[in-house]
Write a protein that binds this DNA or RNA. Structure first.
Lengths: 348, 348
DNA sequence: GAATCTTTTGAAAGCGCTTGCAGAACCTAA
DNA sequence: TTAGGTTCTGCAAGCGCTTTCAAAAGATTC
């Protein structure tokens, strides 16, 4: 948009009496219905009128009022996005991509944060519903399946970080099992035999998958699963630090750690640093997510890369598909390993 | 909200025919106007009726439709937030706080990202205007003053990261000069005489303030300002790394660096690490912002702490004040120094 | 108890747009 | 040219709420 365009629009808004569809109709010498139909492509309109209306529209700088539109048509052109917290690099990235994808289709996103609390989530969803969103995207919801299914009876639902099948539901498949496996495989491939794992919150589907991937890799390589090599974190730096300390105090030896996400890895590395344990010389560390900052930790973090942006884009696309009653097919590309410097072969 | 409440609401939404104010009126045996008045407190209503209406409301689980409300009342109960990018920890934090603050007053935020590009910003603002937001919060806008002033003639504007005075404008004062000064003072207080500075983008008001603070501190301590000790970054990890390399290659000696923001500091520390320069033994580093992760870098980063959340809260509060035609007074608390381990006294 | 002043309430007219319905306009075939 | 079809287009009735205006109900005074 050029500067002058914005100026004009601002001026229009300032006047309070924005141009209405009716004024356009009058200007073009047609009825409001006709203008509406042209705007929405709801019916064929004689070419001459279309031209006249378009002329009037640009002359008057008309912009349909979305509020009136929603009320009359029942469509709000906005879709709700429930996220856990906006101030995490991961969710931030997803939201950024979501915003872009929705905006492209002229939808606005209404973002709300559930803070990992079921009741907050419910309130947020209530809020979204009351705003008449046309669909809801749940990014890592903690709500029970049944409730989500029920929700999907009134609006299309897209979810990430878990899978659920249903009529009006689409799960953006971000299966973390494979990525976790990749990370563990890598560590084992480097010769490590005692690989610890710092898990995410025990009840998150996503965290469960990562644990599963870790176990699966161990099994594939015929390595025993040792309960004492697993500590539970909470996906935060702080939790990672605590978990690592617990691991260190546990007395069980290990030469490598796979942290359930990057922030956890950061915390773990700090705990290691505090005890004088060198990464990667004494212990190798691998994370999960590949946050922007992970390429700048010291040492730069080897981590499972997944396109955070991709998740957002897919979710947005899937939602648009659902709204238009197409079957969504968007898939995120599988996770890969970003090999950097926090892990190295076990020295023999 | 309890689970069953949500269920009911979902069901209502699904049915399409949500409970309307008119149904409440009938149920309570009064006119719709009365119900509206009670809801909005627009007029005194006999106590008995108030009770009857409230009873009807809770019996029917009535929730006023915000869309209809906007259309009729001209208020959209939503305010626009223009941010540069959602996937930065700093902006993420601001947005999180903003969301909370607005939600509390029952406003929804419409978030859009300008990506540091004037034209994107204009387009975003146009979008917000077309959604009939009641106010716009600009988080670190790059638009020229005149344009913002013009915008403020049509909707109240709150801005952060720069100051501008005007009728309908409020700048959340986050003067960075003081913080930058604090950081530099600290470094000098630790005995450092050759303190380098990695600046932010040259044209950002905020970055300019940080540079000014750095210079002011130097001047206060009668230290010369050396152009060769300043490198320009772009507020990203990557830019910080490049700037540090440039500094290192510049040939000018320094024992401390003040980076214009934390991400820049991360990059700088990595560059130092790559060259085998130890932090803080060989070079002290101080950042600015105190991102969540900064307590977990290695070594933990000494940095200027400012309440990121505070900024968001203030901005939200100021906007609500502006809308209600009160003079905003919200102020963010001044920056303080979070002393951690990336800086140490100059060894003599 | 009548007259006057307040306070409370309801009827009705929108807010700006969509849409079902039916009349108008146009086209084809006879 | 006219009947019979199609294809446009306008009218008018909403969407669910707010708000003005005037009437109804109470309160107050003499």
């Amino acid at each position: 948009m050029r500067r002058s365009d914005l100026e004009r629009r601002v001026t229009a808004a300032a006047a309070g009496s924005a141009v209405t569809l009716e004024m356009v109709a009058r200007e073009a010498g047609v009825s409001p219905s006709t203008v509406s139909r042209i705007l929405n492509g709801t019916a064929k309109v004689r070419d001459a009128k279309v031209r006249a209306v378009n002329a009037a529209i640009s002359k008057l700088q008309f912009m349909p009022d979305p509020v009136a539109r929603s009320l009359a048509g029942g469509k709000s052109m906005s879709i709700g996005v429930m996220i856990q917290t906006l101030d995490s690099p991961f969710f931030g990235g997803v939201v950024a991509a979501l915003e872009k994808g929705l905006m492209r289709a002229n939808y606005s996103g209404l973002f709300v944060s559930g803070h990992w609390r079921e009741n907050d989530e419910r309130r947020c969803i209530g809020h979204l519903l009351s705003r008449r969103v046309e669909g809801i995207i749940l990014v890592t919801s903690c709500l029970p399946d049944a409730e989500i299914l029920h929700l999907s009876r009134s609006v299309p639902v897209v979810l990430t970080g878990r899978s659920l099948v249903g009529e009006n539901v689409y799960s953006v498949d971000v299966d973390s099992t494979q990525g976790a496996r990749l990370a563990t495989d890598y560590l084992i491939g480097q010769g490590h035999r005692r690989v610890a794992f710092i898990a995410g919150p025990v009840d998150h589907p996503d965290a469960i998958q990562r644990l599963a991937g870790y176990k699966a890799s161990l099994a594939t390589h015929k390595l025993p699963f040792a309960k004492k090599l697993v500590a539970v974190g909470d996906y935060t730096d702080f939790g990672g630090q605590a978990a690592m300390n617990q691991l260190l105090d546990g007395g069980e030896q290990f030469t490598a750690v796979f942290a359930a996400n990057d922030q956890t890895a950061y915390g773990a590395m700090l705990a290691l640093y505090r005890r004088g344990v060198k990464v990667p010389n004494d212990v190798s560390v691998v994370g999960y997510d590949d946050l922007l900052t992970s390429a700048f930790t010291i040492p730069p973090l080897t981590t499972v890369h997944r396109s955070i942006e991709g998740i957002g884009e897919c979710a947005a696309q899937a939602m648009l598909d659902l709204i238009d009653r197409r079957a969504p097919v968007a898939k995120v590309s599988p996770a890969t390993l970003a090999v950097r410097e926090s892990a190295r072969p076990l020295r023999s």
